[in-house]
Amino acid sequence: MMRASLPGSAMRSALYLILLVFSIFYLVPLYVMLVNSFKELDEIRSGAMLALPDNFTLAPWESAWSTAQIGVSPTGLKPYFINSIAMVIPAVLISTLIGAINGYVLSKWQFRGHRWVFGLLLFSCFIPFQIVLIPMAKTLGILGIAGSTPGLVLVHVVYGIGFSTLFFRNYYEAFPTELIRAAQLDGAGFFMIFARILLPSSGPIIVVCIIWQFTNIWNDFLFGASFTDFDSQPITVALNNLVSSSTGVKEYNVHFAGAILAALPTLIVYIVSGRYFVRGLMAGSVKG
């Protein structure tokens, strides 16, 4: 008995060891960012990147938040963090609302050609956004919202519709159509059925959609870099300016604090509702 179970237990130990090694691989960058954001610059330069801080300091965080040089002005990341919030909230809410109503139509009020419409919406999720940069810049200019937060909101709403429609359409597809027919016989109309029957049971998919859109839009860099001015840049663009600016001393500790600041909202969402986050990822890749 003992001999028979030995190879098994050796293998299990190896299994745990491998899993542990990989969890270190995934954690090290976060750990490095975190510990070094509390160190003084000299301490990082002396090659102790993995060590805990000797002289614990909050100065890098203060600097990253309110005094670090971003582009031409020493404002820290704060105004850009606020820009990102002002961009992400309307963009997420609008695209989720549109996605819900689209999904409702495409699953419960199918018409001739609905499959084509859905296919065209779906393909728009996957286009390389480089293809729209030039005409979008021109269009935003014509609309008079170039370089502004409303302009960026429009961009994110337009390119978020595909995914949000996909989420709701697949979710409502599984919803019993008989309930809707019954409500119709009772005289309920299109909007009434949506508001009274479908929406109340849409909680989970609304959460999934909001998390997905929030993560994508908050983390976006390409649109933010292409369609904003200095005073409307989102935090990802500001962080990149902070880290890649070639003038002066490289303040690694400030960069790390800034990176964590930029990551914090999506990390919190992930920690609080990881289950929904994973469901969104799955729904975005494995359809139906």
Binding site: L27, P29, F221, N240, A262
Partner: peptide
Amino acid sequence: LRPIYLYPMALSFIVTGTAWKWFLDPGI
């Protein structure tokens, strides 16, 4: 373990790039 393996997906590539840029930097 599962959330540890998956959390990087919640980060922006700019954050990931910053972390790895300095972690792989020969100077520090």
